[in-house]
């Protein structure tokens, strides 16, 4: 019978061999991630272990640590001995600072996405020869120095700065609008600093967009808005997620820009942690604060991996 060749046994055998071949290839590919993992393993994970150990020690009098076990650093995160009556009390100072950084990071991510997505899409729809140009065009401003750029922003938004002087001269306003040393200035600085971190991953993902799908959507009488929300955005999800991570996590720890543009009146997480290694002379507390921050980020990241790893299987 001719059907003999197509018996379930034969089929499963063929499938088995193919699966073996795919597996072998997949296993080889897997090894490609080794160099990165080794480098980060040695120079990222090991130092991190040092930090974990430090966070359970006691601060040495002039900075550094003493080899004596203690969980004070973690306890002190939420509870501190009252300075004046010595009772252990719930102290929200650190939480307030964490919350502030968190809010700034969220707003930065959202605005970067709102501005970055159209920009990346625009880049990805240029003629192929122009696209690499655009990638460079986005990065050139970052060849200057962060501090110098920030000073230029200050010049633009200060009370006697470019915008206010222009508006005053035009008679639009009769009193300068205070922008520098406000939350607005911090937000502007963060937006500036992190925009490319949103645009480039998005571009990288959008550039492979298959426009036949869009054409198909239009053939089915989809409106522009429907095409955007039902086709383009779902297809660029990996880029959106990558961009959001690259903006949100670093923005959470950013402190130089907020310090200069915000005038340093309110601390950010980055300041707070750096302070423990500087004048605070409390390394264990700094380490504990950093680990708590990382734990929070890790939890968020864990959900990301769980929600996206399903799609990795396409290979």
């Amino acid at each position: 019978m001719t059907t003999a060749t197509l018996s379930p046994a034969t089929l499963s055998k063929a499938a088995f061999f193919e699966a073996q071949a795919v597996k072998a290839g997949a296993r080889r590919n897997r090894l490609l991630s080794l160099p990165a993992l080794i480098i980060i393993g040695i120079f990222g994970v090991l130092p991190l272990l040092i930090i974990c150990v430090y966070s359970f020690l006691v601060a040495a009098p002039y900075g550094g640590v003493q080899w004596q076990f203690s969980t004070d650093a973690y306890l002190n995160f939420l509870f501190q001995r009252d300075i004046f009556d010595d009772t252990l009390q719930f102290t929200p100072d650190f939480l307030i600072i964490y919350l502030r950084s968190f809010l700034f990071a969220v707003v930065t991510t959202v605005i970067c996405l709102l501005l970055g997505f159209p920009t990346a899409y625009f880049m990805a729809t240029r003629p192929p020869a122009q696209r690499n140009w655009w990638v460079l065009l986005i990065t050139i401003p970052f060849w200057s120095n962060l501090l110098v750029r920030t000073l230029a922003i200050m010049f633009i938004i200060r009370d006697e700065g470019l915008i206010n002087n222009a508006l005053l001269a035009l008679g639009v306003i009769d009193k300068p609008i205070t922008m520098l040393y406000t939350n607005f200035a911090i937000q502007l600085g963060l937006l500036y600093a992190f925009l490319p971190f949103m645009v480039l991953p998005l571009y990288s993902s959008l550039e492979k967009l298959d426009f036949r799908l869009i054409e198909a959507a239009y053939d089915l009488y989809a409106t522009r808005r429907q095409v955007l929300w039902r086709v383009i955005i779902p297809l660029s999800k990996p880029g959106i997620i990558a961009g959001c991570l690259l903006v949100f996590i670093p923005a959470l720890g950013a402190y130089v820009t907020p310090l200069i543009l915000g005038g340093g009146v309110h601390l950010m997480i980055g300041d707070l942690i750096a302070q423990q290694f500087g004048s605070g002379r409390n390394w264990p507390l700094g380490c504990a604060q950093a680990l708590i921050l990382m734990a929070a980020v890790l939890v968020a990241l864990f959900f990301y991996v769980r929600n996206t790893s399903g799609k990795v299987q396409h290979g």
Binding site: A59, P61, Y62, Q80, I83, D93, F94, I96, I97, G264, V265, H266, L267, L272, Q275, Q276, S279, G280, R281, N282
Partner: peptide, 20 residues
């Protein structure tokens, strides 16, 4: 001169509270 550790700790708290 450098302040003793227990004072530095309190300075640190006051400073953080001031700028929270």
């Amino acid at each position: 001169p450098p302040c003793p550790p227990e004072v530095v700790e309190i300075y640190n708290k006051i400073w953080t509270n001031l700028r929270k």
